[in-house]
């Protein structure tokens, strides 16, 4: 369990980090919490020759709520987010998701930016980020671009972030009804990652569902918005039969469900439907 040789850099600013990225090109890897990258290096699944540790860049760690916008620095740890009082108030889905990732040690080191960029199909963050319709800000030496959550996840372990880019922050518009949200997860027994995870953020009006935004992780090669299910809820009263019928379409956006020794594709689909139903019901109950 020993990585190949690499040179280690610890830039103090984003600019410096971008310069290093340009300099080392494809041979470089950014390191934030290291909770995904270090295992990859130790197993020699990747052999970058330059490791650029962005963990000391203070600007990447900020969490702020101003006006209608929540900004979370890419290097905010899962633990930072889980215990952030303002987030709890304005967008509790973030903290609820963060608290279900790994164990305390992992949450103390792992970051939201690292998790999103790593794009593990069973990671928890993607479900919440999709349900919140968040935007991910990426910077390169050429400038900054904003990537919508729905465009961010490309395939298994592949996000839209380019090798010369650094994710700097995640932007979330304050939900209209912050409390009408939930993240439910069925953990894989060994790893604790999601066999299936469903994040729901609802807007209810007079007992009717004005808007539903549902992110599903673990089921397919990439996390996705359950748009068919969302459409089936829109404008409806959330009684049992409506929710059940809608939730039966929770897996409609995924053609290929993941299959491995832990669960078949059929079972994952089934869990997605059951947990989508439960998530919608739980979020509605909290509203």
């Amino acid at each position: 369990m020993i990585p190949t040789n690499f040179e280690y850099f610890a830039p103090a600013t984003i600019e410096e980090a971008l310069q290093l990225l340009d300099q080392h090109g494809e041979d470089a890897k950014l390191l934030s919490g290291g909770q995904s990258l270090i295992p990859v290096l130790k197993l020699r699944l990747a052999a970058p020759t330059a490791i650029i540790d962005i963990g000391r860049i203070a600007a990447l760690k900020q969490i702020s709520v101003s006006g209608d916008t929540i900004r979370i620095g890419a290097n905010a740890t899962h633990a930072d987010i889980a215990r952030h009082a303002e987030l709890k108030q304005h967008c509790p889905l973030l903290g609820e998701t963060a608290a279900q990732i790994g164990d305390q040690q992992v949450r103390n080191r792992g970051t939201i930016g690292g998790s999103l960029t790593h794009a593990d199909p069973a990671a928890d963050w993607p479900a919440a980020i999709l349900a919140l319709d968040a935007e991910i800000v990426a910077r390169s030496s050429q400038g900054e671009r904003v990537i919508k959550a729905t465009d961010f996840f490309v395939d298994v372990m592949t996000s839209a972030v380019q090798p010369n880019e650094i994710v700097t922050e995640i932007r979330v518009a304050k939900p209209a009804q912050p409390q009408a949200a939930v993240y439910l997860k069925v953990p894989q027994a060994a790893s604790g990652f999601a066999l299936v995870g469903v994040a729901a953020q609802l807007t209810l009006n007079n007992g009717k569902c004005e808007a539903a935004s549902i992110g599903v992780t673990g089921l397919g090669p990439k996390a996705f918005r359950a748009t068919t299910l969302e459409a089936a809820l829109r404008g409806q009263a959330l009684d049992d039969s409506t929710v059940s019928a809608a939730a039966a379409k929770a897996d409609a956006e995924t053609a290929d469900a993941l299959e491995d020794i832990h669960a078949s594709g059929d079972y994952r689909r089934h869990l997605a439907r059951v947990y989508a139903k439960r998530a919608v019901q739980a979020a509605a109950a909290r509203a």
Binding site: D103, A189, A190, S191, G192, F193, I261, H262
Partner: peptide
């Protein structure tokens, strides 16, 4: 409830790390 060493038909060990072999927490 959890544990099982799984080899596939080629004798490859599918539960070769703690991400896949479920020791109880």
């Amino acid at each position: 409830l959890f544990e099982e060493v799984v080899y596939d038909e080629n004798g490859q060990l599918l539960t070769g790390e703690l991400m896949d072999y479920a020791v109880p927490k």
